[in-house]
Amino acid sequence: MGIIKTSKLIFDYLRYGEDEEHPEINRAIDGVDIDIEPGRFIAILGHNGSGKSTLAKHINALLAPTEGTVWLDQMDTRDETHVWDIRQKAGMVFQNPDNQIIATVVEEDVGFGPENLGVPTPEIWKRVGESLEAVGMKAYRKRSPNKLSGGQKQRVAIAGVMAMQPKCIILDEPTAMLDPNGRKEVLKAVHRLNREAHVTVLLITHYMEEVTDADYVYVMDHGRVVMQGEPREIFSRVDELKRYRLDVPQVTLLAYELKKSGVPLPDGILSTEELVDALCQSN
């Protein structure tokens, strides 16, 4: 069993329409089975409303399954005695950078998690310093979060999670509200944590460019996992992705179109260099 595992996970929520008496049952997650090995970089792709964020909230017990089971590091998320252990081990970064920063000074915000865990004061300071260093925000430790850019705020949020020393971090569309530079900053920080601190990363997104470096990709639609595999495999199935309201990077699309027109190219090209090399060979 991996660090994150779900088995036949189902989640229903009720929606009350005009007449309050007959709530409509909506199935947000419909039988998801995933199993993630420690230390990997996993991406979950899906359009808005595909159930990917709901899945994320199950992993650290913010939501409890209607049916099926979620285990985090062997612990069943429905077991209430483990709830704080689970949340400590599975840190979560949300979409809106403003709505997850609690304190008015960067370092105090990073210290918030360890404070809740009851970590002794000197240890908190040590962790705050290390976490800010890890995301490259040490120079900003005394600043007010309001004066930071979106990408910087998200890096502070990541540091806040890292200070709890989690085994994995779940990022729920961390870049959706950022500009391209902010997006790059955040992804770089996350990749570095995965590489150097060996934290398992679960990145939820709808930006395809962000998943090319992931180890493994799940694609969700209507609460189900509809595609899974390495990025290269997934990206070679352009038409299928379009059906799930997704897109591929321009290089991949160009390679796919050229291949369709008879140019001999390998499947699932992910970078400019790959395409140029392949084209030069075939020329």
Binding site: N60, R87, N99, I102, G113, P114, E115, T121, I124
Partner: peptide, 22 residues
């Protein structure tokens, strides 16, 4: 959103909480 973010960071009231800047 904030309530959820605080819960995700293990906030559960003042009990058993230490302080960064006591």
């Amino acid at each position: 959103d904030l309530a959820m973010a605080m819960e995700a960071r293990c906030y559960h009231g003042g009990k058993g909480r230490t302080q960064m800047k006591p």
